[in-house]
Write a protein that binds this DNA or RNA. Sequence first.
DNA 1: AGCACA
Length: 231
Amino acid sequence: MLSGDIPPNQTIYIKNLNEKIKKEELKRSLYCLFSQYGRILDVVALKTPKLRGQAWVCFSEVTAASNAVRQMQNFPFYDKPMRIQYAKTKSDCIAKEEGSFVPREKKKKQEEKADRKRREDTQQSSVPNGTHGASNGGPTASFRQGSSAQEASPPNNILFIENLPHETTGRMLEMLFEQYPGFKEVRLIEAKPGIAFVDFEDEVQSSMAMQALHGFKITPQNAMIITFAKK
DNA sequence: AGCACA
């Protein structure tokens, strides 16, 4: 209940975002940053006076949202710490996925809220659809909260790369990673072939590269596994 | 601070 009294939701609500960032860039960056936690169905951001500085990120699983709320809490994003909570209501894109979406009519907001609450109360716990068909079956295991299960490392400007073919050279990795802003250097570990570290200026930039290159196949058998390095 | 779905 650190996040207030709002019950878990597949969608997270983020505030204290830098209002100078243009909407499209903001949405793209949020998508990159949060897709490490699971499949993202939608990112909503409006720049209206009432809604600027805020955004909603909709995940396909509640566990992904939970991990995101905990691990990205106060994450410095465009120089401002993100404040993250669960969204108060169900996102349209989620309702659409479960077939319970009803286009909003011209009603007062109050009635709309009541409607949504009613729908939520009658819905059963959502069935995880086995089709995680995204790019490559990413690192987004569903962690049991508070258990001894392995936690993903928190964001770090250093990326940890695994599953590289032993023939991989530093130059090869440089060519892949240097196209992303903030790239600093690649470090191969000669004692341990198959892994590497890649340094970026900051966590936001490393996150972007991670999202873009995770699962990239250097050979058909060698999809890169990218995680944040342990601190 | 601010909870929407252009």
